[in-house]
Amino acid sequence: MKIKSLILSITSALILTLAVTTGCTSNNTSPTPTPSPTATPSPTETPDTTTTASIVDTNEAFEKAISSSGTWIICTLKDLTFEKELVLDGEFKNGKKDAAGKDVIQRKIALYTQDDAHNVTARFNLTAPKLTINSPEARIQSGTFKGDLYVSAKNFQLVDAKVDGNVYFTTEEAQSTFKMDDKSSVTGKRELKK
């Protein structure tokens, strides 16, 4: 029994280390964000939120990570199931700069683990009756959300992900800026619902 506990502890530590060092991303078509320490703003700018990754394996940790005081990237280590509605809130910087030198805004729910070569090694399910996306430039990547998704923010993406439910857009801007790659799918409706 002690050996099994030791193996589980070592495995968990390795997964956590791997996820943090690789940033939980495997999408080669967009900038590869990696977690960075909290940026120190210059005296003339108002700080938004720039954070490191949050590696979660409990409902409580997931809820904290998706809040407006959470992290820009939320990496799950197992299936998570909620009986209540969830909300992805807040605007976050990922620690990168764009071509113009401006901070890159991004939010990601990473429902997977990966190896050192960025190959997905496990995919997870996130189940909730409803998930509302209020964070701009957000995505769900490489796993399955089971429930109805309400998108209120611009530029939401599904990347190598599945929504087992409906996707409702609460604004025309949210609907017109939505993107989904060819590896992603939605089993239900995709429609504007104000």
Rank of each mutant, 00 (worst) to 15 (best):
T144Q: 13
V87K: 15
G188Q: 09
T46V: 13
D79R: 08
R123T: 13
P35C: 10
I140K: 06
K78T: 11
S9D: 10
I73D: 08
G147L: 03
Q106I: 00
V151H: 03
Q157D: 12
Q106A: 15
T76M: 11
R123F: 00
T22W: 06
G70C: 08
A65D: 03
T40N: 13
S30W: 10
T50F: 09
A13Y: 06
D79W: 06
T40Q: 15
T71S: 14
I133G: 06
P136W: 09
E60N: 11
K4W: 05
Y168V: 00
T171H: 10
C24V: 06
S9L: 12
S176E: 15
D48V: 09
T144P: 08
T121M: 07
N59C: 10
K97G: 00
P47D: 12
Y150G: 01
D148E: 07
S12R: 15
I140C: 08
S184I: 03
T121S: 14
L86I: 03
E191Y: 03
V104R: 14
T11C: 12
S185T: 12
T22E: 13
P136Y: 10
N28V: 01
T127Y: 02
T25D: 15
A39W: 01
E173G: 02
I55S: 08
E83V: 04
S135H: 08
L88F: 13
E91Y: 03
C75G: 07
S142M: 07
W72V: 01
E137R: 09
K102E: 12
G90Q: 08
T17C: 11
G188S: 09
D103A: 15
I3E: 15
C75S: 13
Y150E: 05
F145I: 04
E85P: 01
L16N: 13
A128C: 08
F156D: 01
E60W: 00
S54V: 00
K4F: 06
G95M: 04
